[in-house]
Design a protein around this nucleic acid. Sequence first.
DNA 1: GAAGTTGCTTTTTTT
DNA 2: AAGCAACTTC
Length: 801
Amino acid sequence: MLSDIPHTSSPLLAQLNEEQHRAVALPPEHALILAGAGSGKTRVLTTRIAWLLQTSQVSPGGILAVTFTNKAAKEMKLRLQAMLPVNVNAMWIGTFHGLCNRFLRAHHQLAGLPQTFQILDTQDQLSAVKRLCKQFNVDEDRFPPKQLQYFISGCKEDGQRPGDVTVRDDETRRKVELYQLYEEQCQREGVVDFGELMLRSYELLRDNAHVREHYRRRFRHVLVDEFQDTNKLQYAWLKLLVGLPGEGSEGAILAVGDDDQSIYAFRGARVGNMADFVREFQVQHQIKLEQNYRSFSNILDSANHLISHNKTRLGKTLRTDQGAGEPVRVVESASDFAEAQWLVDELRQLVKQDGFERKEVALLYRSNAQSRVLETALFNAGFPYRVYGGLRFFERAEIKHALAYLRLMENPNDDTSFLRVVNFPPRGIGARSIEQLQDAARAAGCSLHDAVSATTGKAGANLAAFVAMIDVLREQTEGLTLREIIDLVLDKTGLVNHYRAEKEGADRVENLEELVNAAESFVTQEGFGRSAVAMTQGGSVLTQSPASQGLSSDAPATDEFSEDGVTMSPLAAFLTHASLEAGDNQAQAGEDAVQLMTVHASKGLEFDAVFITGLEEGLFPHENSMNDFDGLEEERRLMYVAITRARKRLYLSHSQTRMLHGQTRYNLKSRFFDELPEDCLKWITPKQAGFANLGGNGGGYSGGLGGGGGWPQTPAQNRHARPAWGQSSLSTETYKSPPVPVQKAAPEHGITAGKQVFHTKFGEGKVLAVEGTGADARAQVNFPRHGVKWLALSVAKLTLV
DNA sequence: GAAGTTGCTTTTTTT
DNA sequence: AAGCAACTTC
């Protein structure tokens, strides 16, 4: 009953439905919100915070909100700021890793870390592991570095140090040994990987009662977004941070999640945390948000119907007040090329006739490899598109090189960075010199940087020059602005010149210039001036001062928890920013282009029209997942996520054949089609124009003139050349259609109704019907094992029995 | 020390 | 198919 809720008069609550209202105005106790897709989850989260502040139940300093992505954190701050005049930087809003970083910077001594510790991203971590393997002569066939990396990350996600791992066999024993050595290496070098950020922070809270008590008193309201995606360690961290009932703590957790949208089990997410949370925190308030504001009911019913096939669910059914809307369109193509071509035609019509905006249309697929055909077709049609995924800005090689120099200036012991740039650009320091240096460093138990002075000869001179350059740069850049520092480093290290001289290096030079811009805007946005300033997010933290008793739990901005302990140079702050936030990977936002992405990447987004492509057995559900129960359920949730992205129109598309790993595969349509409500669907058969059927005949799609990168032209972001017939600078107006590949005359197939035929995958079957001629010829065949199929004769290799 | 050649792998992804 | 790593050759 609304009347039972306090403070209902707040205008903040006026526009909420009853469920949302109840969620926002919950008492300060642990609660779980089951928020269905499109049910206004973020809105509830932000309004909850705003309401708590407005009704003076908490001050900004008492709020901690945690998300999984920087994007979500940014969004939350933005919307909060729009709701009420509050300094969002006084609140702790960020990703798990961002917040952990903040804790560790503030308590670096207690955590056993240098103040300037650097953060290894996944790439850095792998190269660190490789280096370790070389040093200890690990048989890389028996222990592939990638697998070791996976092992180490997995252990950390489970909260296990080397000593905590149960060793049952020799292989594990060796892995644990290497894990231990890896840890020592990181510690020596003053670097932490992502898992370490989380684990160290957990241990900090676990092992230091006064720190724990301080934060428990301080954070009265802890809000967790996407709770279904938390892993074991993150949940344990939350338990420490807030304290279980009976531990005398006062903070309340508001967990928001949707078990049906849990699609990250493969990387350690534990949906079970939701049930554990309810049990361990004795949650009294559970609210389901089932009102969907996004989709028409044909779309929503399809999603509901599909997900109802999952056995392990908390149970939730979305409803909408919008009408049925259009039926969900289902399309079958003969080949992935035909699918792509059909898609382009349909897109054109969608935009021209039905008035959809390009950027409001998404093409979704299960795996990245599927994007290529789509891109090729779009590119050749001159249709603007944008691909999400792939290399992000701060992951690009040239950027990582530049950052490595900067990191070395901050922390000379960072051997990973040292090795990355010691001979890049080439300066005559080869593998042999580096090996010698590594031996010396190992013998002396010091970093590569420090071992240089011990080397002799010509190699030693080169190394000495390199180290001297870094040291000189450190001195020269003292007191300069971040921009000036980076400019100087790019120049003096020869990095820019090296790429200028390279014939394919223009994009890289551009990216390096972009790095300077990124630094500039970082300074502006985060308020970093010339002098050292506090943590990137502002706000206060508990310093290492021993006087940590008698703290007020709120608004400690002016007390002894001043920012003293967390001052960082602008450079150090920028480096942290670069490791924690890989940056955008998309071309110009705002460009009106259709969006291509994996289903995973689409989570949290919505579009007017959505195409889900490649709905085939083995692809979606993926073959690696479809053999075990949990895997299949996750695939189904993935499909559920995909469907619920659509507002108005949804297309489901599958193809009979598809090129995969250089081979044509014959696929059955996805089992998910059988799990959708038939009366919501409309089966469309696209007209099979000649162009659409060029499946396996080696037509003109490959081996074009090359050049160009996507459309519209985004040279710096879209470096990889794609096949194209035309010039790379296309415009919709001037572009001419690619020449239609010459279709070989279809051989006389002699397939007629009633005959027995053989198919390489489906086996023997009986022809029921044949239609079309030449390239368009299709046969309907009844296979005893696989049912009735329509097969394009130009694609499927049917032989008469 | 750098450039060319062969062979191998191939889900999903954030921090 | 294609990208990447490791190997061989100049």
